[in-house]
């Protein structure tokens, strides 16, 4: 028990082993579809931002400082005359990179260490889990703050700092999935036919855990984007001029009264992304767990 995510109990359903019908179901799920409708255009815009006829994200323009949203600048401009839309798109790039990197790191380490712990049990399990317990003893933002203050700020340290808080949670999740009755049955069956351990793990145990892990990963990605924003606020995140959604919002909120758009526009985008990642995870969950489909 006690798997702590952003909202801990959200993860509790993961302990019920779902069937794995592949990922085809996504297209058939309403929430997942909505999520994709929001995410895909943002992703495309971000990917092709540099090909659009827009000024560069760092390019300043002293004649167009703090302009309201207009046709020319749909999100307005900031204090240095930079286009907020362009900066937001560049920020989305960075933020998504942070989100997905964290999710991938957490996923990889979580699967490997969690499977080892669950599968081998005994001393290995105890050793891994006591280290996990130590890391779980820190609230996640605290751990990130502590690490960033040691390693320094910047893209890579921030990703590592956030991921380190997530890895132990994924290890725990994966371990509990491996230890679930369904996996147990597989293990016992395979043992009776003397299958190799590697074959057993890669063919039967890990695939069974992928869907719930994906659910957790999309929540972790959304969470990472928000944690980066908090770190940026405390001056410990990704530093200007490289725009992350977090630092654009932080800088912009100082002008909330004079130029609301500087921080509100990227704020809306961050919300849209996080929200759709949550919908995506809900979609996966509902598709897998008929009990939740109501």
């Amino acid at each position: 028990m006690a798997i702590t995510f952003t909202t801990p109990a959200r993860a509790s359903f993961l302990l019920r082993m779902p069937k794995l019908p592949g990922l085809k179901f996504l297209a058939g799920n309403k929430k997942a579809r909505l999520a994709l409708i929001i995410l895909v255009p943002i992703l495309l815009l971000t990917a092709f931002a540099s090909y659009l006829p827009l000024q560069g994200p760092l390019q300043t323009n002293l004649r167009a400082m703090m302009q309201e949203p207009s046709f020319l600048h749909p999100f307005g401009t900031d204090r240095m005359g930079r286009d907020v839309l362009v900066r937001t798109l560049a920020g989305v790039q960075v933020s998504l990179f942070v989100g997905f990197s964290v999710a991938i790191i957490a996923l990889v380490f979580g699967v490997v260490l969690g499977t080892i712990a669950g599968f081998f049990g005994r001393t290995v399990d105890r050793a891994i889990m006591s280290v996990v317990d130590i890391f779980l003893a820190f609230p996640s933002l605290l751990l990130a703050i502590g690490l960033v203050s040691v390693v320094g700020t910047g893209l890579v340290p921030v990703i590592l700092a956030i991921a380190i808080a997530d890895v132990p949670r994924f290890i725990r999740l994966q371990r509990s999935l491996v230890l679930s009755p369904r996996s147990r049955a597989y293990i016992d069956a395979a043992r009776t036919v003397k299958a190799s351990q590697w074959w057993l793990m890669s063919r039967h145990i890990v695939p069974n855990t992928i869907a719930p892990l994906l659910v957790a990963a999309s929540i972790a990605a959304a969470n990472a984007i928000l944690v980066e924003a908090s770190l940026s606020f405390l001056g410990l995140g990704i530093m200007p001029p490289s725009p992350s959604l977090g630092n654009i919002i932080r800088d912009g909120q100082l002008y909330l009264q004079q130029a609301w758009w500087i921080s509100t526009m990227p704020g809306v985008v961050i919300l849209a992304i996080a929200l759709s990642l949550h919908f995506l995870s809900d979609g996966i969950r509902e598709a897998l767990d008929p009990r939740a489909r109501k």
Partner: peptide, 16 residues
């Protein structure tokens, strides 16, 4: 359970 477990995010929040 959640009240107990949300203490973590609560502590995060108090810092800011």
């Amino acid at each position: 359970t959640v009240v107990g477990l949300s203490f973590g995010s609560l502590l995060n929040g108090t810092i800011i």
